[in-house]
Amino acid sequence: MSTLYFTKEHEWLSVEGDAATVGISAYAAEQLGDVVFVELPEVGKTVAKGDDIAVVESVKSASEIYAPVAGEITAVNDALEDAPETVNDDAQGKGWFFKMTVKDRTELSDLMDEAAYGEFIKE
């Protein structure tokens, strides 16, 4: 059973045990507009919470993606290389960016659930 979390930086994490799948929220994808390029991290890379690890580019701008928690990158969504528009079509599904381990589950307590994130983006 996976649990969905969101960061204030508009990433989502679907966590199951100590494994997480990470992407950007549907709200963020909509704000960005047409995604034309995604730069993904290397598999095997160890990251600290807050590290720049990926980049998402729309027609007009480039935005950093930060590591939502500490851990190791275990997989990346290679399909985004040829079809970056998947991020717009299905941000919280097929548009996932990478999978990682969750080194310290206590870091998850800083994150929001879907309802809290919904309130956060209304502000």
Binding site: E11, K60, A62, I65, Y66
Partner: peptide
């Protein structure tokens, strides 16, 4: 990610200063 589009058009002056600030 930072929705304020930190790297829009580089440092020397931005064509579109802030794409994502909304209204």
């Amino acid at each position: 990610m930072n929705l304020s589009g930190i790297r829009t058009a580089g440092a020397s002056g931005t064509f579109l200063p802030d794409l994502f600030l909304g209204p």
